[in-house]
């Protein structure tokens, strides 16, 4: 699983990265977390409100920092059964 945190490096982007790392650690799954800071690449996902969370190339959240529990649920929902 590849999880991407989209954002130019603002405070909220860093918060989302931290939350995502926590969620992945809690789930104990094998996931790679990548930061995407390039504007053209961010726009490629159609995202205008940063920070955004992308799981396996699907945008699952944008414009806010979800709680750890919510990110965990998003990851679980995206994981192949």
């Amino acid at each position: 699983m590849i999880i991407k945190v989209l954002g130019p490096g603002c405070t909220n982007c860093k918060n989302l990265e931290r939350v995502t790392k926590e969620a992945v650690a809690e789930l104990g799954i094998d996931a790679r977390i990548e930061k995407v800071e390039d504007y053209a690449e961010i726009m490629g996902y159609g995202v205008m409100s940063t920070p955004a969370l992308v799981i396996d190339e699907t945008v699952v959240s944008s414009g806010r920092v979800p709680k750890v529990a919510e990110v965990r649920a998003l990851i679980s929902a995206a994981a192949p059964a």
């Binding site: 053209a40 726009m43 996902y45 159609g46 699907t58 945008v59 944008s62 414009g63």
Partner: peptide, 30 residues
Amino acid sequence: PFVFETRLGGQAIDPAAGLTMDQRIQMGVE
């Protein structure tokens, strides 16, 4: 020039949609 060359992906989601009242209150507190 890169602004005009940027292609928008089609899967944008609206952050305002689908939030529960609980999440909105949470956002306010944060």
